[in-house]
């Protein structure tokens, strides 16, 4: 078992493929395209108005969160409803520690704390069947909120905290864009590593994965830790922009919900899937919250159900279906032409 169990370990790609990186030409091309797109995105806040900037920041936040959510929940089918717990924790570490340590240190600390927190949760719940994990994650944000409120009560601090860090809007966007880039790189690396392969087997059939000698618990916990670390760091990066942090805001169940809905809308089986959900949904959300501020919950719930029932594979699924149909159509057209020419 032990030697086989190591198969699930994230062996660095450089070692597993011998002396070369093993990046194909196609992958180099995709990397280059991604780099160009990121460079283009980085220019957006320089040319856009204040409104465009704020939407761009929202999109960057949700892309980082939804993509990191998808890293874990996409391949494994374990639905995590706890994004807000990690995001809020990251936020609170910055808000609470600003008098004690410089801001960049706090961001790192938030990542470490998020990782440890996720490891504890993962070790407790991910070793047994998936339902326990979902249930545990459902109330996790509320649990952390209660504990922080209680701690503040005991310590006698104010429940709301002000976060003053001098950052321009452009800087916020670039920070979040950088985080998103890291999320993508890590996701890409996982996708081509043995760990990613192990996770896909787990998602297809966990029993099969166990029989293949994959240490399923370990693979799941590692991925959950990676995913949650990003959520915590995102919280730490966003905290100064909100400038006022309060338990009910930081641990709002809305955030977990939005992240799931956006990732599902985009599609969770491609790395770039969540992005295709984040962009339309952020714009839609702007529209909803501007026009129906009282009915946001209802409309969000309805949108969620529509996605679950009518676009189960997300926008990516729709695109791939369309491409496949087009491919088949072209093939039959070619056959037809060939036959015609032969007849003639």
């Amino acid at each position: 078992m032990t030697s086989e169990a190591q198969a699930a370990a994230p062996v660095p790609v450089t070692k597993s493929t011998g002396h070369r990186l093993g990046i194909t030409g196609r992958e180099w091309r995709n990397l280059a395209i991604a780099a160009v797109l990121f460079a283009l995105a980085a220019v957006v806040p320089l040319v856009g108005s204040g409104y465009v900037q704020s939407i761009a920041i929202s999109i960057a936040i949700y892309t980082a969160l939804a993509t990191s959510w998808m890293l874990f929940s996409g391949p494994t089918n374990y639905i995590s409803l706890a994004t807000a717990a990690f995001f809020g924790s990251g936020m609170y570490i910055v808000a609470g520690g600003l008098d004690l340590a410089p801001y960049p240190v706090l961001v790192l600390l938030a990542g470490v704390a998020g990782a440890l927190f996720a490891a504890v949760v993962g070790l407790a719940t991910l070793r047994i069947s998936g339902v326990y994990f979902v249930i545990f994650s459902l109330g996790l944000a509320e649990l952390v909120r209660q504990i922080i409120t209680w701690l503040q009560h005991v310590l006698g601090t104010m429940s709301g905290l002000y976060v003053y860090v001098d950052r321009s809007e452009e800087m916020f966007f670039w920070q979040l864009l950088a985080l998103t880039a890291v999320v993508y790189l890590v996701g890409w690396w996982i996708g081509r590593s043995r760990l990613g392969f192990a996770l896909r087997i787990i998602g297809n059939d966990e029993l099969v994965a166990v029989h293949c000698g994959i240490n399923t618990a370990r693979a799941k916990v590692i991925l959950f830790v990676i995913s949650s670390t990003f959520a915590a760091i995102a919280g730490a990066l966003v905290a100064p922009r909100w400038s006022y942090v309060e338990p009910t805001i930081a641990f709002s169940p809305f955030l977990s919900f939005q992240v799931v809905i956006m990732a599902l809308l985009g599609g969770v089986h491609r790395l770039w899937g969540p992005l295709l959900g984040v962009i339309p949904f952020t714009l839609l959300w702007e529209l909803i919250s501007a026009n129906f501020p009282a009915q946001t919950t209802l409309l969000l719930g309805a949108a969620f159900l529509l996605i679950v029932y009518f676009i189960p594979n997300g926008v990516v699924g729709l695109i791939e279906d369309a491409l496949r149909q087009r491919g088949e159509w072209l093939k039959s057209l070619r056959l037809l032409l060939v036959r015609r020419s032969r007849d003639a």
Partner: peptide, 11 residues
């Protein structure tokens, strides 16, 4: 589905 439903009911 029921997660979405819960938000509809709250709404």
């Amino acid at each position: 589905a029921t997660f979405g439903l819960s938000f509809i009911l709250v709404g």
